[in-house]
């Protein structure tokens, strides 16, 4: 769908992006992670034709509609509803339909009461939500998300993930720049990082660890021995109530949990406690 051909970008004599070749197929969901100022936003803008690369070209398979959630949504001197109505009509919705759609989305994102406020007085998070709503009023071919969640509360984040995954199931192509590993994991399938101007695959390391709570369901005299065996599986073990809590890596969870249950332990809770924040290159 989008083909980057030898894209380079220079700002003030400094090369931000160097010779990037990449194809983003239709329906793919890609994350771009990396340090502040490494060129994520610049790359998204080049993809959509907003920024002209210093060298190279961007090729599209066909004319594409892009919708874009900018990293910092501007405070436009209209009420949120007026703004969204204008954008809805620009996207081709009839006014009445746009109005209904805005109401729906506003309710989903808990901003109904802010629709009539001037956007210049909205809080950062609310403004960012308006930024998300304007991008998903209609279904685009490509959705560009530039740190879409900055400042949003937890409930809205969940709604956001749901909405985006719904759009993905309808075949849109997704490109996101983002710092939250959870979000990368939740809505994208591939991630890249920009290192010294070059786009390289990033695997968000699967170092997730799980907190496992176990209760002993076997005979009381067996419990002591079973506890010893548990220590053989994980060294990170502590008593918890009448049972134990152990910490396991994702891999250990996958291969050893069955064994633990077979020994006569009952699983009481399994909770992710740490997401791999390390991005290995």
């Amino acid at each position: 769908m989008i083909h980057l051909q030898q894209i380079s970008k220079k700002y003030d004599e400094k090369w931000i992006l160097k010779d990037i070749n990449q194809y983003f197929p239709e329906g793919s969901a890609t994350a771009i992670v990396g340090h502040n100022g490494c060129g994520k936003s610049t790359l998204l803008k080049i993809l959509s034709g907003l920024v002209v690369p210093s060298k190279g070209r961007v090729q599209y398979d066909r004319p594409i509609t892009f919708h874009y959630v900018p990293e910092k949504f501007p405070a436009i001197p209209l009420t949120a509803e007026q703004y969204l109505l204008h954008t809805g009509v620009m996207d081709g919705l009839p006014v009445s339909q746009a109005r209904v759609r805005i109401r729906e989305l506003a309710e989903d994102f808990y901003v109904t009461e802010h629709l009539q406020s001037d956007m210049t007085v909205l809080s950062k998070g609310t403004l960012q939500k308006i930024g998300v709503i304007q991008a998903i009023l209609t279904v685009p071919d490509v959705l560009l998300l530039d740190e879409p969640l900055s400042g949003q509360d937890v409930d809205s984040q969940k709604v956001f993930v749901e909405k985006i995954n719904d759009l993905r199931s309808r075949g849109i192509t997704l490109l996101m720049s983002c710092h939250e590993p959870e979000l990368v994991e939740a809505i994208t399938e591939k991630s890249y990082t920009i290192a010294q101007g070059v786009l390289v695959p990033a695997s968000v390391a699967k170092e997730d660890r799980y907190l496992v709570l176990l209760h002993w369901a076997g005979a009381a005299e067996e419990k002591q021995r079973a506890g010893e065996r548990l220590k053989g599986i994980s060294e990170d073990i502590l008593p918890y109530g009448e049972g134990y809590q152990i910490r396991l890596t994702q891999q250990a969870c996958d291969c050893r949990l069955e064994e633990i249950l077979a020994q006569g332990w009952k699983l009481r809770s399994l909770q992710k406690i740490q997401t791999g924040e390390k991005v290995s290159l």
Binding site: K45, S48, G49, L50, P63, I64, T65, F66, H67, Y68, P70, K72, F73, P74, I76, T87, M90, D91, Q134
Partner: peptide
């Protein structure tokens, strides 16, 4: 003019 606002407008139409 706000550049980001303009960018959003530009993307609203398929052709620049």
């Amino acid at each position: 003019e706000d550049p980001v606002e303009e960018q959003l407008l530009q993307l609203r139409v398929v052709r620049k």
